[in-house]
Simulated scan of single mutants.
Amino acid sequence: MVKFTATAISLLMLTMAPAALGKNCKGSLMYCGRGLLNKGNYYDQIIEALQGAGQSTDSSHVNNSMFYCKSDGNIVFQAYCQTSGCINGGADHSDYC
């Protein structure tokens, strides 16, 4: 049986933290739902944001809706890109309809 000390566990968590933080959306940018899903585990937040805005939670809305990324990494529904779908704006640029 392997025993871990509190120090070893703390060091392990510190080395893993930057990797986890790197998957968050970048504050003040707009993201397609599809892009958020590729970036990290945003599914539950997407569903919550869609429900809060009175939108459908079908796969089209999950993937083709626009979300504003707040500085804390939380997202806010902005629009559903019904006509042309949601388009990836590229690195460090907002996505758009």
Rank of each mutant, 00 (worst) to 15 (best):
F4V: 13
F4C: 13
T5L: 05
T5D: 05
T5Y: 03
A6Q: 15
A6N: 13
A8W: 10
A8G: 12
I9D: 05
L11T: 07
L14W: 08
L14E: 10
T15P: 08
P18M: 10
A19L: 11
A19V: 12
A20P: 04
A20E: 10
A20F: 03
L21H: 08
G22H: 03
G22K: 04
N24G: 10
C25S: 01
K26S: 06
G27M: 08
G27R: 02
S28M: 09
L29Y: 12
Y31K: 08
C32H: 00
C32I: 06
G33N: 04
R34T: 13
G35M: 09
L36A: 08
L36Q: 05
L36W: 04
L37E: 03
K39Q: 12
G40F: 09
G40M: 04
Y43M: 01
D44M: 02
Q45D: 13
Q45A: 11
I47T: 06
I47F: 04
E48Q: 05
E48S: 15
A49N: 00
L50N: 02
Q51M: 12
G52R: 04
G52N: 09
G52H: 03
D58L: 01
S60G: 13
S60R: 12
M66P: 01
F67V: 00
K70D: 14
S71D: 05
D72R: 00
G73T: 12
G73H: 01
N74S: 15
I75P: 00
I75D: 04
F77R: 00
Q78H: 12
C81S: 13
T83P: 12
T83S: 14
S84N: 15
C86F: 07
I87W: 05
N88V: 11
N88W: 15
G89L: 03
G89A: 06
G90W: 12
G90I: 06
A91V: 14
H93F: 12
S94P: 08
S94G: 08
S94K: 09
D95R: 04
D95V: 09
D95K: 03
D95Q: 07
Y96W: 10
C97K: 03
